[in-house]
């Protein structure tokens, strides 16, 4: 028989007994907040359809997350908001005219095959949203490269042929005689008045979000700066299209600030992050500028490839202990 308990029991745990105001869900919430300006821009430029697609992706991710955890008989992790972030990022990387069912399939793939198969958050080697995007790009090539005709208001020197193309497709095609250096073009690219995926068009909105993440110390500057810097320098030495056009077009900004900085799939140390960012930028430009390349845009693939290299980068950039004597 149990002897009588004398006093109320205290909690016993190991030090530290204090904890910072940080949690996984809070970090994810910060990322969601940081992505809201980009989402708003997407809705402004592409209409309600963008919102429907985003909702579909998020819902698909949440449902898949819940069902997977249920099937695995593990605790439900919807509350950590990571599935919402994945859904949101995926949606922002989709063309606005994509059929809704395809978006749903993408969401299921992102959570089911790129995340929960590995045991859930923290274990996935590849960014789930990008894996899903790459998967969709290969499975639904047509739909994934058909762009809305609503935006793209390039005035000077434009032809009808470019009205349904993204700037990058135009670069790939090598549109002769197109004046890339006009100020109006840069402005449109910066504001987001161009064609492209829902969330990637407005560099301004994305940079506002990135600054928020930097201020909240959710991300550090290393990966975005290394990524965008490499793209800029590469474009500068390559010549032709102005470097700024390369930086502002396509998924460069959203990739550098939001996708490449994903904790789980990027290196830990500052040095590792710089290597990671440079690698992303380099591969992006290789794919973008190869005249025979199959894809006009290389951001997703470059980040995925660098994701694969992350364990090796981590391995070779382990920090030196404080007080360690060099042997």
């Amino acid at each position: 028989m149990l002897p009588k308990q004398t006093a109320e029991r205290y909690i016993l745990s190991s030090s530290p007994h204090a904890h910072a105001d940080a949690s996984t869900s809070r970090i994810m919430l910060d990322v969601i907040i940081a992505l809201l300006p980009a989402l708003c821009c997407g809705v402004y430029f592409f209409g309600l359809r963008a919102l429907i697609l985003t909702g579909t992706c998020i819902a698909a991710c949440l449902v898949t997350e819940g069902l997977c955890r249920l099937a695995m008989k593990r605790e439900n992790t919807i509350g950590d908001l990571s599935a919402v972030v994945t859904g949101l990022l995926l949606a922002l990387n989709l063309p606005p005219d994509l059929p809704v069912w395809m978006a749903a399939v993408g969401g299921v793939f992102a959570i089911g095959f790129a995340k929960q198969v590995f045991g859930g958050l923290g274990y996935n080697p590849f960014n789930p949203a990008l894996s899903a995007r790459a998967f969709m790009l290969i499975s639904f090539t047509g739909a994934m490269t058909t762009w809305s005709s609503s935006a793209w208001t390039l005035s000077a020197g434009s032809t009808e042929a470019v009205t349904t193309a993204t700037p990058l497709a135009l670069i790939k095609k090598g549109a002769e005689g197109f004046d890339w250096s006009q100020a109006a073009l840069i402005k449109d690219l910066f504001i987001g008045n161009v064609n492209g995926c829902i969330g990637e068009v407005s560099a301004l909105a994305l940079l506002i979000g990135a600054v928020y993440l930097l201020v909240r110390k959710v991300i550090t500057w290393h990966i975005p700066v290394a990524f965008i810097g490499t793209v800029f320098l590469y474009a500068m030495f390559k010549g032709g299209v102005p470097p700024l056009v390369h930086v502002l077009s396509g998924g460069c900004v959203i990739g550098a600030c939001f996708m490449a900085t994903d904790y789980v799939t990027s290196p830990i140390t500052a040095k590792g992050k710089l290597i990671f960012g440079c690698g992303c930028g380099l591969i992006t430009m290789l794919i973008r500028t190869a005249p025979t390349g199959a894809y006009p845009e290389g951001v997703s693939f470059s980040i995925l490839i660098m994701n694969a290299l992350t364990p090796l980068i981590n391995r070779f950039t382990q920090p030196k202990p404080f007080g360690k004597v060099k042997k």
Partner: peptide
């Protein structure tokens, strides 16, 4: 659990040595 008392609610890694090193363990 129904025969011996516990003197605290242990919150930490699930390992005996770790629990024993935390205030001597939660078992009376």
């Amino acid at each position: 659990r129904s025969e011996a008392i516990r003197v605290g609610d242990y919150n930490g890694i699930c390992d005996c040595a770790a629990a024993a090193a935390t205030a001597g363990g939660d078992k009376g």
